[in-house]
């Protein structure tokens, strides 16, 4: 299989990548891991005139700085999978990446590429919204920060401006008794998800819920933040009955798009089941967490 012809150039820094993109005009595209872009090129769904390879633009760094986990946009899914720093500070990432594709995809695909691609079933998009991540981007007009919740517009469309590149993704690492959970059902290992649910729960010393976030992925044109529906849990001890009510309410309200392999009602049922599992698991993990001021390594 051959893609349409294109020119190829390597950027040795992010500012250089921005310059090369600007010089390349409208049909210039970034290539990172190529695990989404290359299949599209091979199927002739994309025909960029110039590929700017950013794989050497920066290190694949993973840093914990001031209660923030900062991942270079070039960090690969397999880097996340094996990083103890990630597991200790944002374990939802660790849990989610093992659902992505296969070992080969995980060794090339990057977090920056995954978020920039705007695929509505991308696990990392759902996690980024659930964990309140911020995406750092650089463009001809300079640097800016985009909350993950504002990045995803619709299928394969983000709020990135033409010529902008994602350079880093920052995940807050709050302290306290906090737990998270990522749940997914796919038809086979490595397939894109039918439904994803991601939850975070913070508890006080008395096991009462201080805050809760709930995001549903893969059912709509982007991750859907349904945290509002989980508000009745706040101030309460989280138990199966209350969670069940929240999960059923979320499933009843949420708009579920069509899917080739699964009916709407089945996927609506999955939303209820997975949202419930995510909330209960996150609450259990929060209850097991030791209190700390930074949350680093707080969870087993």
């Amino acid at each position: 299989m051959y893609s349409a012809p294109f020119e190829y150039v390597r950027a040795s820094s992010w500012p250089e990548a921005v310059d090369l993109l600007e010089g390349g005009g409208e049909d210039a595209r970034v290539i990172a891991g190529g695990q989404s872009l290359v299949p599209m090129m091979m199927l002739r769904l994309a025909a960029p005139s110039l590929l700017v390879d950013v794989s050497a633009a920066a290190d694949r760094s993973v840093d914990l700085v001031d209660a923030e986990l900062v991942l270079s946009a070039l960090v690969r899914h397999a880097d996340i999978e094996h990083s103890e720093v990630v597991r200790g500070s944002c374990p939802m990432l660790t849990e989610a990446v093992t659902h992505i594709g296969n070992v080969r995809v995980r060794h090339r695909g990057t977090i920056g590429g995954s978020l920039a691609h705007g695929e509505p079933t991308a696990e990392l998009a759902t996690v980024a919204v659930a964990e309140g991540a911020t995406v750092t981007v650089l463009g001809p007009g300079g640097e800016r920060a985009i909350p993950a919740g504002d990045l995803f517009v619709t299928h394969f469309t983000t709020s990135l401006e033409p010529g902008e590149v994602v350079t880093a993704v920052r995940f807050p690492v709050p302290g306290g008794r906090r737990g998270s959970s990522f749940q997914e059902i796919a038809r086979r290992a490595g397939d894109f998800a039918l439904v994803e649910a991601a939850a975070t729960v913070a508890l006080d010393e008395d096991d009462r819920c201080l805050s809760v976030r709930l995001v549903v992925g893969a059912v709509s044109d982007r991750p859907v933040d349904v945290s509002q529906a989980a508000r009745p849990l706040i101030g309460e001890r989280i138990g199966e009955d209350a969670v069940g009510e929240v999960a059923r309410a979320v499933a009843a309200e949420i708009e579920v798009g069509p899917h080739t392999h699964a009916g709407r009602e089945y996927r609506r049922r999955l939303v209820s089941v997975l949202a419930g599992r995510a909330l209960l698991t996150a609450a259990d993990r929060a209850a097991g967490a030791v209190h700390t001021d930074h949350g680093n390594g707080a969870r087993a």
């Binding site: 190529g34 091979m42 590929l51």
Partner: peptide
């Protein structure tokens, strides 16, 4: 391990 089909 990588996909040689998806690597230029």
């Amino acid at each position: 391990p990588v996909n040689s089909c998806l690597t230029f």
